[in-house]
Write a protein that binds this DNA or RNA. Structure first.
Lengths: 159, 159
DNA sequence: GTAGGAATGGGAATCATTATCAGAATGACG
DNA sequence: CGTCATTCTGATAATGATTCCCATTCCTAC
């Protein structure tokens, strides 16, 4: 890509963009790579990463950074928040409007020049909830130990 | 650690906890490791990671996941939001109260069982702002290219 | 004391992402 | 059209934060 605000729309770039826009989920780079390879078998994962990055910087798509290790991408570029399943890593859109006043408040109350903000909700998605097998058998500690409250089931801590 | 809500308070664990509580910043694991080694030279980075994780799960400290690659930790366990510098990665507390109503709204409007939420503000901190050298010399694109608006200065995208 | 579980240190492994680089594709311009 | 500079691609290596592994050490209960 040049630095004059233009880029070639190569076949690879186009297919990546088309496929992402056609999916209404929030795929990771390798999930999208698998899908793009159906149309273009020789495309490499590096090309997918490279173009997702460029397309996100250019504003065509959104890169989502969640609590999970892997980044996710989406075709929707409207400003909105996300909801992540702490069990399986699935990401959905959160049904609450983005709040620019909050960002403005932080901008005014600090020495930072605030550019953006991100909100992420963490929870258990319907399908993980169905297949759950909770057994919180807590006993009380004693002896020369420090006791504590578990803030959440450790197994739920998605990656 | 056992799974009966107790843990030994080993010397390593104690020193890690004390040092983190004494710092009023938001260090990464390796920053804290350097500091702890001043008191306990043989402690390994793996032990620091292990104990930060356990202490966070037990609710003694907070693990902060920001846009940066490295996680950060803090002694303050009150519910609050963070503000990250996109240039240098520095993290500060955001001076706005945590909003539990927002989380409740998402819980009620989705099939998820929402457990928590995170809010992160991104901006340029005062010291990076001072040392900035902006030169947004945008020319218009032409030819068989796709033009776009840069949503932000690429260099600001803190890893 | 001693046995058994828990924790440590150090180094290897993991894994998402980025860098590198030679060759292929593309666009500009005569 | 042909050439040339630039951009892009595919393959693979490198990176780096975090976790895993495991032999040894440490604690705690009895």
């Amino acid at each position: 890509m040049t630095n004059d605000n233009t880029m070639r729309m190569t076949r690879q770039r186009q297919v990546i963009l088309e496929e992402l826009k056609a999916m209404h989920t929030h795929p990771t780079a390798d999930e999208l790579h698998r899908r793009v390879r159906a149309r273009m078998p020789s495309i490499s994962l590096a090309t997918v990463y490279r173009n997702l990055k460029l397309l996100a910087e250019a504003g065509f798509i959104t890169e989502i950074r969640t609590v999970g290790v892997q980044r996710r991408y989406e075709g929707n570029v409207d400003d909105h928040y996300h909801l992540t399943c702490v069990r399986c890593g699935r990401v959905d859109d959160a049904p609450v409007p983005a709040d620019s006043d909050l960002q403005e408040a932080v901008n005014n109350a600090t020495g930072y020049r605030v550019l953006s903000h991100r909100v992420e909700f963490l929870g258990v998605c319907p399908s993980c909830e169905k297949s759950s097998t909770q057994n919180p058998t807590a006993r009380s500690g004693r002896g020369n130990r420090v006791s504590y409250k578990q803030s959440h089931n450790r197994k739920e801590f998605y990656q």
